[in-house]
Design a binder for these strands. Structure first.
Lengths: 190, 190
DNA sequence: GAATCGCAATCTACTAGTTGGTAGTCTCAT
DNA sequence: ATGAGACTACCAACTAGTAGATTGCGATTC
């Protein structure tokens, strides 16, 4: 589906966006890091919107694949949520990918091209959907104890994780993220 | 301290930043909306970093003044938190100021000038500090029931509110924000 | 098997427009 | 007459995107 160069462009764009957001990264930045001319990037991704949509689609596909793998491999829904949190905890602690690009782009949503806005929305929908499903299953299996509807608990969980990412950025470390998310999970434990 | 024009520039810059973030708004945008030349803006605020720092300082001063007013006027700490949430709920519902600029800038923190980064940090510190203080008082007065330390509860509360702002953006409405924040407060109620 | 075609990927060179910021001038109230 | 506040005109750097030439490789044809 995608050649080797396309992949490197996508990965580089993602890395840049995690630091800079949408409007602050440029084709010139990618050009420099990948070692390719600007025009070549346009060959693979005609417009910036197109490139960013591709990055988001790849991110979402990857995320959902991970989610489904978790659902298959782990019986305990609570453990799945823990694994989700653990994933980001590792990313933040080792500065590997210290922010979810979709959450980052949600902040600057009004300034984004329509197609990009749509992809960001899809991410929020799918992510909250998976969490809600996991919550429901957890309640059935008495692994999680919900105080409100699964939908509301899921939205709250997602918001708390995203907010904790913001705090991690602002405070410059993973400590706050870890405490906040650990608390969020503990509160749901049966 | 600031003349009338300065004030209009600050307000316009803030409004633009709420939609666009730091890097996507320009002096030309402000020039157009305020009806003043770009050079005049530079006369009042020599650099972009300087302007944004001023916006953040004003925002923070305003926020803290509001906080202190709440602390004076309301005996019940729980009601203060409710008022804080209610403030943002109104802002989001009426599209008046549908995001906290400091939280927004935290997302793009790595790309911001140092001085701006500092102001963003200060906001997070002061806001979480006020919430923590309110939590402690609430626990003493048996108005709030904390399950973890006041610091951790405060960080969680702040993160949840910020995350709910992101969700409100992504989903394009205030419904999610209202449910999530109402739940966060209810959970703390004694 | 060799010649040829077609096409994907790359390049250099360029465009038109925008960016933050500067220089120097004018006006007008204190 | 001094200085704050506004202006026009400009700058170098950067932006996304385009035009058109060149390369190289795999398939088709002779």
């Amino acid at each position: 589906m995608h050649g080797e160069t396309s992949g490197r462009i996508l990965q580089t764009a993602k890395t840049l966006m995690i630091d800079l957001g949408y409007s602050a990264f440029s084709y010139a930045d990618i050009s420099e890091r990948v070692g390719i001319s600007k025009a070549s990037i346009h060959h693979h991704f005609p417009t910036k919107a197109n490139l960013v949509v591709s990055v988001l689609q790849a991110h979402r596909a990857n995320l959902m694949a991970g989610m489904e793998a978790l659902s298959r491999q782990m019986d305990d829904p609570r453990a799945r949520l823990q694994a989700y949190i653990g994933h980001w905890e590792g990313c933040i602690r080792h500065q590997k990918e210290p922010f979810c690009i979709a959450a980052l782009l949600a902040a600057e949503l009004p300034s984004l091209p329509k197609e990009v806005q749509f992809e960001v929305q899809q991410h929020f929908l799918q992510l909250s959907g998976w969490i809600r499903g996991t919550m429901e299953e957890g309640a059935r299996k008495h692994s999680l104890r919900l105080k409100r509807s699964a939908e509301e608990e899921a939205q709250t969980f997602m918001a708390t994780v995203h907010g904790a990412m913001l705090s991690a950025r602002a405070f410059g470390g993973s400590a706050v993220f870890e405490k906040v998310t650990a608390g969020a999970l503990e509160r749901l434990s049966a």
